[in-house]
Design a protein around this nucleic acid. Structure first.
Lengths: 242, 242
DNA sequence: CTGCCATATTTGGTATGAGAAAAAACAGAT
DNA sequence: ATCTGTTTTTTCTCATACCAAATATGGCAG
């Protein structure tokens, strides 16, 4: 759970090797965010589910606790475990986002996340420009070097790209902003990985990146914000969003 | 869990009536975000904790599942349950935020959240101005009426204030933005509830609110953003932040 | 029809044990 | 002595059984 190691879509929806309660939470989570259960519906009871799926009540209960912690459901004795209203869902939780993505993301979902990105990342760049130190700058510079060397067609290049954005985040010195942006960029990464094959010729991303880096290095907050905005707009345009 | 019914600080840190696993998660959660356990530390084992605290291993395990779902810890056989690095924590989870607040919020924490608010709420107002419908406007108008009638000294007035902001959020039609802003405004509300007594004469909040409402009603996105920014800056100034 | 109460159902909690996985301790060879 | 491979031990993981508490449901009386 909450591992960011590999791509959530590379897993064929049903895998061994994972903890039982984790698999249950995963299955139920996808069923919920995918709409197979609607808000107000009640999940199968402990007895029933454990019997049908051949797992223990304990494992099922632990899975429900996880879903409950993420705001997807709430349990009450006798009435059962109900799906919460969507407004209660923790939409920014990494697992919830992954489940949404696996369940087949709706257009509204993707639009929401990209809008959030346009709100958050430029703001992050602005804060980063005001608070970065020498180490931040050298790390960003190194990431851009690697990115330029390998290009976005290679996995090394993409890793460098993500590292650059990550360094900007860390330089904001704002933990809540980091948490938020981590979730947002995860979804963006999953999305662009799909869009990659579909698109033909993408523009050279380096000038945009250099401009952002330059503004952050010079401590120009407002300029960093604007440059990041154009970077995102261009990238999103390439990825077919917007 | 995740109930927004009453103020988290009104509970005297130890309460009956709540589910056992919930109380455990609450206790451990506060201990973790409060720094009594540091990232890398390991929690007491199942056997030990259940023996010392007089609860069952099962209850303890369910509590750990909750903390794990919020990114605070991760369990592995033999090595035990470790506190995650802060970057893994789901800082925007309502419970995590509540625990931070209960544990005694640091200045950095409050600064982070207020910065996030300044990023998020103006953006929300902007989206709301572009997407609101007649019903949104009438609800916002009604909230402002009530707010004007009761004033911010009464609980009705404050409820109306929160309702106004909530209506703006809902009008964005962006669920991830709503989730995010819900967490942020919760912290802001807890904070201002404290600052309330300390401050003497607060400025009249109505002109700022009217300006935001007016811009949203007229569909002026950029203006709504700016007016909301002023509203927040003024309110934060009154509350002693910034 | 209305209000009250008994009952059945469902989650909540406890106790306990077998099992797997991984770290740590250990032993043997070079 | 150090490195390597094996064994031991610790700790989480999953399972089963049983009881408690809460509450939705339906029956019964007025």
């Amino acid at each position: 759970m909450t591992q960011t190691d590999d791509h959530p879509l590379s897993r064929p929806a049903s895998q061994a090797q994972r903890a039982v309660h984790d698999r249950i939470a995963h299955d139920l989570g996808i069923a919920i965010v995918g709409g197979r259960y609607q808000p107000g519906d009640i999940l199968p009871g402990e007895e029933r589910y454990s019997a049908e799926q051949g797992v223990s009540r304990t494992a099922y209960r632990e899975a429900v606790r996880v879903l409950s912690a993420k705001g997807l459901v709430h349990s009450r004795t006798k009435s059962g475990t109900r799906i919460n209203d969507r407004l209660r869902w923790n939409m920014l939780d990494l697992d919830v986002l992954a489940w949404m993505f696996e369940a087949g993301p709706t257009q509204e979902f993707l639009r929401d996340i990209f809008e959030l990105r346009i709100v958050v990342e430029p703001a992050a760049a602005q804060f980063a420009a005001l608070r970065r130190d020498g180490q931040d700058i050298s790390r960003m510079g190194h990431a851009l070097e690697e990115m330029r060397r390998f290009g976005l067609q290679t996995s090394e290049g993409r890793a460098a790209d993500q590292s650059f954005h990550r360094q900007i985040l860390l330089a904001t010195r704002n933990e809540s902003l980091i948490t938020l942006a981590t979730s947002v960029t995860a979804v963006v990464a999953w999305t662009t990985r799909f869009a990659r094959d579909a698109r033909k010729e993408s523009r050279d991303p380096m000038p945009d990146h250099d401009a952002v880096f330059d503004a952050i290095m010079r401590g120009e907050g407002e300029e960093a914000r604007l440059k990041m905005l154009t970077l995102i707009r261009n990238a999103s345009g390439d990825a077919g969003m917007l």
